[in-house]
């Protein structure tokens, strides 16, 4: 039988391979824990964005006042920002939770958080004592301080982890 003669010897392990979950069992566990971490990160960050946007959608005038007090945007853009930004936060939060369009959602989340932290630091450097407007539109919310920056930085750390998972991590 010509066919049989030309066949190379087959490794018996290849005939009944063990199911592969990752490379080996330890790496499989690592992959599962990474997936759980990513799921938690998505829900935490998504929840934060939805919560942050919700109150501001309910009180647009008060949020416009907060945006004005930051003294960064020109007067003509204040109302537009007050109207659009909370909806953007709501959309981002929802997309994070339902795992939709993850690459762009994660990129936008990072950009938004970096912008917020930048604005906070800029105004703290200028000595401007205004309310943060991070989670509430009322102007008598806690004024921005280093704890506000640290809190937002922790959210940014979660967003950066999601960015890494999305673009660089090999599953």
């Amino acid at each position: 039988m010509k066919f049989a003669k030309n066949r190379k010897a087959i490794n018996p392990e290849l005939l009944n391979p063990e199911p592969v979950i990752g490379y080996n069992k330890t790496k499989g566990e690592n992959l599962n824990s990474h997936r759980m971490l990513k799921l938690s990160a998505r829900f935490i960050l998504g929840g934060v964005f939805v919560y942050a946007g919700f109150d501001k959608i309910l009180h647009p005038s008060a949020f416009a006042e907060v945006v004005y007090n930051y003294k960064i945007l020109p007067d003509g853009l204040i109302n537009l920002t007050a109207i659009v930004l909370p909806c953007l936060e709501l959309v981002l939060g929802t997309f994070l939770i339902i795992h939709f369009w993850m690459p762009v959602t994660v990129v936008m989340s990072n950009i938004l958080l970096i912008t917020f932290i930048g604005a906070l630091l800029f105004n703290m450097a200028r000595g401007l004592d205004v309310s943060c407007g991070c989670f509430s539109a009322t102007a008598v919310e806690s004024s921005m301080n280093i704890l506000t920056v640290l809190r937002d930085t922790s959210f940014l750390a979660i967003a950066v982890y999601l960015l890494y998972s999305c673009f660089f991590h090999r599953n």
Binding site: P60, C87, V91, P103, T105
Partner: peptide
Amino acid sequence: QSFAMFALSILLAFAINQFRSDRLPLVGD
């Protein structure tokens, strides 16, 4: 998808603003 997300947020924002009783003008004084 970034453009689409911005467009969706803007549409949603304008729709909510249009139908609310305490509507905010797009450009304020």
